[in-house]
Design a protein around this nucleic acid. Structure first.
Lengths: 115, 115
DNA sequence: TTAATATGCAACCAGGAGGTTGCCTAAGAT
DNA sequence: ATCTTAGGCAACCTCCTGGTTGCATATTAA
């Protein structure tokens, strides 16, 4: 692997780790699921049906926001949150890259064994 | 959305959250990157070039192992670790599902506005 | 104006995560 | 048999995380 490629991968790690971390929590995954509906939701609305406090949900939303997975826009007295699909696409590409590397490595090992 | 579908999604969250969490750390992503090479690596080998202790790396490997991202096999006095691509595929599918839901929701909103 | 709703802010707490050190055991190498 | 290397185990520390409660503030509704 080239130096450039290695640096790119290291940069990718720094960028992707927070996104993975933000998704690494059941509560936050359920928030993401609710926001998949397409229409922005207020904090109160997102808290409905949860056993957690509004503040707990707020914190989780902040985590998602810091990771860029969600955007907040203030409307009147409420904070509306909506999904941002871009980071999802990013880490999907990253996972595809990992799979690809893995497959190529296996192919090399196979040809080495056979050759 | 149907009840079945909702239950399936909740089960998916329970299954996927730990995987995302395991990937939500730069050190562990770099370990994954090294293991993408295809050949199993010992703990000492994976520690080489890191500023962390062998024990720290061991802990990270245990996290990856608990999440199913990595498999350990003992050979002589060393523990060899290899990637398991299956969980990667799983969360990739999950991300694709999220994107899909999002796109469909957007399409519905669009037709609602236009109609 | 007054009441109700939606949110923000801060303090606080328990537990877990990431990391270190020290010591012990097992397996190769000489 | 002895030395060296790879790894496991446990204690310990610090900081972050997930969660709570209490109170303050800004809108909206009556």
């Amino acid at each position: 692997m080239s130096h450039k490629s290695r640096n790119r991968m290291a940069a990718g790690r720094r960028a992707h780790a927070p996104v993975f971390a933000a998704l690494g929590d059941e509560t936050r995954l359920s928030l993401v699921a609710k926001l998949c509906g397409g229409r922005p939701c207020s904090i109160s609305r997102l808290t409905e049906g949860s056993r957690l406090t509004r503040q707990a949900i707020t914190k989780h939303l902040c985590v998602l926001e810091r990771a860029g997975l969600v955007r907040r826009v203030r409307r009147g007295r409420e904070s509306l949150f909506a999904l941002d699909p871009e980071p999802f696409e990013e880490i999907k590409k990253y996972l595809e890259f990992v799979s690809e590397q893995w497959d190529q490595a296996l192919a090399r090992l196979k040809s080495f064994v056979e050759g």
